[in-house]
């Protein structure tokens, strides 16, 4: 890659079971009891029917959007997940093959990878751009790549929200299992009047990281989206350098963080 685009970080968000938002994460506040995402910003029907992943992605998305002061009706959104609604899919397969029942139509409709993208656009009354993608451990990097293309194309903000729900026990070995984690970052184009913006990003590029990964429990460290947490931490701490977006398990994509005081 010879070209990369520079953008401003306008806000961040996250949801983990021991830390329900990025502000608490930065303040090192952790919950003693596991938290469940409540999807408070989704409409009532969607809230009741959506998966834990969709609600956790919505929590992270709206936190980043609020921090950025984004116009929810207009802002473009890129959602990413390695396994997406795999829990919903297994529930449907249970209904079909184990219980020999007709699957729930609503569960089927919400089993698509873009369930979060859809319910967030509905909740926000946003008729603009939204997408949902996956690339295993490169999902954070490729969601950011898609966002960079959008910003270059449209010159408007984009919110990237990536997450994976706890691994399906039936399909993944115990030592590979991870916990629920979702992360979001609001990006905006660099404009002439914001030279003072605190944090800018450039990339994604293939490079050797210069900033260390943050220490997190193994269940979070194995979540394919954890690279976005490392990026969020660098942003919150004002550290300049290259952040690995895959913790060495993907294609080696990094994001360069450029902090005004870093």
């Amino acid at each position: 890659m010879t070209t990369s685009i520079e953008v401003i970080v306008a806000g961040v968000g996250l949801f983990m079971s021991d830390c329900p938002n990025a502000a608490d994460w930065h303040a090192q506040k952790r919950s003693a009891e596991p938290q469940q995402p409540n999807g408070a910003r989704l409409d009532r029907r969607a809230r009741g029917r959506s998966s834990v992943l969709t609600k956790a992605l919505a929590e992270a998305y709206f936190e980043a959007a609020d921090a950025a002061g984004a116009d929810l009706v207009e802002v473009s959104a890129v959602f990413g997940s390695a396994l997406g609604e795999v829990g919903t899919m297994l529930g449907l397969l249970n209904q079909i093959w184990r219980d020999r029942e007709e699957p729930s139509p609503m569960a089927f409709a919400l089993s698509v990878h873009n369930a979060a993208s859809g319910v967030v656009s509905i909740a926000s009354k946003n008729r603009g751009f939204t997408t949902s993608l996956g690339a295993d451990h490169d999902t954070p990097a490729m969601a950011l790549m898609e966002a960079m293309g959008l910003i270059a194309d449209r010159g408007e903000p984009v919110i990237v929200a990536c997450g994976d729900e706890p691994t399906p026990v039936a399909l993944v070995a115990e030592d590979e299992a991870w916990e629920l984690a979702t992360f979001a970052i609001a990006l905006a184009p660099v404009r002439g009047d914001d030279h003072g913006a605190r944090v800018r990003l450039r990339g994604p590029i293939r490079a050797a990281p210069t900033l260390a990964a943050v220490e997190v429990p193994p269940g979070i460290a194995r979540n394919p989206q954890v690279g976005l947490l490392d990026l969020i931490c660098a942003v919150q701490e004002g550290s300049s350098g290259l952040v690995a977006l895959d913790r060495g398990r993907g294609g080696g994509w990094c994001m360069e963080v450029l902090c005004a005081n870093g």
Binding site: M1, H113, N114, L133, A135, A143, M145
Partner: peptide, 10 residues
């Protein structure tokens, strides 16, 4: 060997 992802929007 460039960027690669899979869009999944039904």
């Amino acid at each position: 060997q460039g960027p690669g992802w899979v869009a999944s929007t039904a």
